Simulated assay, not measured.
Amino acid sequence: MEVGQAGIEGPKRKTTETICQRNAAVDVLINVEAGVWKEELVQSLFLTYEAEVIQGIALSSRLPDDRQVWTQSTMGCFSVKSAYKIAVDIKSGSDSGAVSDASSLRKFWKHLWRFNVPHKVRHFTWRACKNILPTKDILEKRKVLSEIMVAKWDQEVVEKIIMISCGLWNNRNEVRTGGAKKKVQAVIYGALDYLVEYQSSQTATIMQEVKCPASWSPPPLNSFKINMDGAVFVAQKSTGVGILIRDEDGRLIGACSKKILAPLGAIEVEAKAIEFGLQFAKDMLIQDFVIESDSLTLINALKEISPPPTAVAVLVYCSMAASHEFHRVAFSHVGRLGNRPAHILAKHALRIVDFLVWIEEIPCFLE
């Protein structure tokens, strides 16, 4: 983006030629030494809402090289699914009068995809509702079915009906390809048994996924644990970061409360908290520690279990690079209750101007 050109387009924009060159790039808006936006310059060049959007983009203090990302995807990678969604949005925008009750239809599909049945069965039901199953009639006519209305049935009943429907359809296809024709009773019992087995396995999986440490636990011997959290102050258009360092006995080694004068989002301030936590560890001359956060998305990204969200990908990768500068760094996820002291420190940033640090002293509001 060229700041000079963007600044003089249209009569509503403020003149920028007296502030920066016509072809200046985005880097003129960044304070390279501090790794933050030049607040006064951004506000002088752009309209208020534009300046807020720009300042809401989280920057890494390491300022890595630029890279291309696909903004329509959460992880920044191009996918046919995201491109298809854009095409559908464009088409629906041009054909906005084609569907008389679009909101009701969207509500119907939303409920359909929530049914607790296997995904392929939901997909079968979707195809049946859209009348795009390869039946003889459809193959001959190739027409689209009109809007379908569904009665307000009990969800468990609907789940059983679509499971049985899918079972009947699959057996029909088996017969057409030379398979054995099952009795209706066998198809029904088989479909319902499959549903019970699937829902039981899903319940066990969900219980396993949501299980995480609810309280703080000490780090390994001769190491430290650094808990950090972020807080968003919408009214003040700023955010706060809280950092807490404790040893294996739970003794406080250091604490920090820092205000960030930028309207960052929740995931952005969490990522900045991890970045500041690593810098705080460096300042405290700590080499062996555990980074702990209540953001499972960021911890999984730092562990390289899953890719980071596009909005904080740079921050995550820079934090990973910074962690290699220490002797040993591990990453851990904890529940909100176990991270409460760090959250209190983050909220305390609302009352300060820049930052406060406590060394081997527990802040009075944490006691």
Results as ranks from 00 to 15, higher is better:
163 M>K: 00
142 R>F: 06
141 K>L: 08
221 L>S: 08
174 E>Y: 12
200 S>I: 15
196 V>Q: 15
161 I>V: 14
186 A>M: 12
158 V>L: 07
170 N>G: 01
170 N>K: 03
147 E>D: 03
203 T>D: 15
187 V>T: 12
140 E>N: 10
218 P>K: 00
184 V>W: 12
215 S>P: 04
217 S>E: 05
201 S>A: 15
207 M>I: 11
166 C>V: 01
188 I>C: 11
199 Q>R: 14
168 L>S: 03
191 A>K: 00
211 K>C: 14
171 N>L: 05
220 P>C: 04
146 S>H: 08
179 G>E: 07
177 T>E: 09
146 S>P: 03
195 L>F: 04
208 Q>S: 14
165 S>V: 01
180 A>K: 11
185 Q>I: 12
164 I>Q: 01
168 L>I: 08
225 K>F: 08
170 N>E: 03
158 V>M: 08
143 K>H: 08
169 W>F: 07
225 K>D: 03
207 M>G: 10
145 L>W: 09
184 V>S: 10
187 V>K: 07
180 A>R: 12
160 K>F: 06
219 P>C: 02
164 I>F: 02
150 V>T: 12
185 Q>L: 12
207 M>N: 13
190 G>E: 02
170 N>W: 04
178 G>N: 06
143 K>I: 07
221 L>N: 08
221 L>P: 03
176 R>S: 15
219 P>T: 00
143 K>R: 09
186 A>V: 10
210 V>G: 07
157 V>M: 07
222 N>P: 02
189 Y>L: 07
198 Y>Q: 03
217 S>Q: 06
153 W>C: 04
144 V>F: 08
147 E>N: 03
168 L>C: 09
150 V>K: 12
174 E>G: 15
143 K>N: 05
164 I>P: 00
165 S>M: 07
162 I>F: 06
214 A>K: 15
181 K>L: 09
181 K>M: 11
200 S>R: 14
156 E>V: 10
191 A>R: 00
221 L>F: 10
206 I>R: 15
212 C>H: 04
144 V>E: 06
192 L>D: 01
223 S>M: 07
180 A>L: 11
152 K>T: 09
205 T>V: 15
212 C>R: 04
207 M>D: 11
210 V>M: 11
206 I>M: 13
225 K>N: 02
169 W>K: 01
175 V>Q: 13
208 Q>N: 14
